[in-house]
Amino acid sequence: MGKIFKYTFYDLVRNRWMIFYTSFFLMLTSALLLISPDLAKVAISLSNITVILTPLVGILFGVMYYYGSTDYIQFLLAQPISRRSIFAGMYTGMAASLSGSLILGIGLPMIPYGILTSPALGTLLIVLFMAVTLSIIFSLLAFLIAMRAKNKIRGFGIAIFSWLFFALIYDGIFLLLLLLFKDYPIENLTLGLISFNPIDLARILTLLKLDMSAMMGYTGAVLQKFFGTSQGSIIIVSILFLWVLVPYLLIMRMAHKKDF
């Protein structure tokens, strides 16, 4: 696995899309810092962008990378290594380069502004943690989609729809439910529904950790009560971990049975 990881990482750090992705965050963070040198405010602005953008890039890049690597996978399958090692190595190599792009693109421009000694470091780490977690989850979903859909157009279509579903449609349905059942006590339903959407989980953890729940009125108070405690944070992180673990295990299972 480690060897496949190494060469996948070598390949992807030189990939032009990855360079573009890193440059985009480098420029965006630098531009935000020029507008306002307040590091905490910049980190919060970045969280609003990363919560939508990292799942989109994760899922599209994952699908694109898998489809572009089908011959390479066949080449690796002819080597004396297990399917598990090949897929684990390729996936982790890709996830590491996506995460590296984010950490470098967002973190590097903040260093001259003294982020390492600033109290805003905690805020930045939360934003980076969420961006990296969302990249990992959505690139895992991308591998699942691409392994399942042989037709590339269909695969890209499912990927875009999945992102649209989690980023927009899910919230629309969610709000509609809240509106329809507004006369009933639906706090538990709300909390349950949030768990099924990693983007919502990331948003809420960021909002709560950055003490912005007061902006969300009564809902914010409910969320603060449940998730705001350290126990709540552990629950959110555990659910996010399940969002990583389950697709990863599904990929391994599919890799074991699939014809290439």
Binding site: K3, K6, Y7, T8, Y10, D11, L12, R14, N15, G68, S69, T70, D71, Y72, Q74, F75, L76, A78, Q79, P80, I81
Partner: peptide, 30 residues
């Protein structure tokens, strides 16, 4: 597969790796 050499039909290797790196990769795997 340590005892099997295979030349596949359509070679599409990772586009940012060089020939030397690919040779080294195969050496690492076998």
């Amino acid at each position: 597969r340590d005892q099997v050499c295979h030349v596949p039909q359509t070679p599409h290797f990772p586009e940012n790796l060089t020939g030397h790196e690919l040779i080294q990769m195969v050496r690492d795997l076998r």
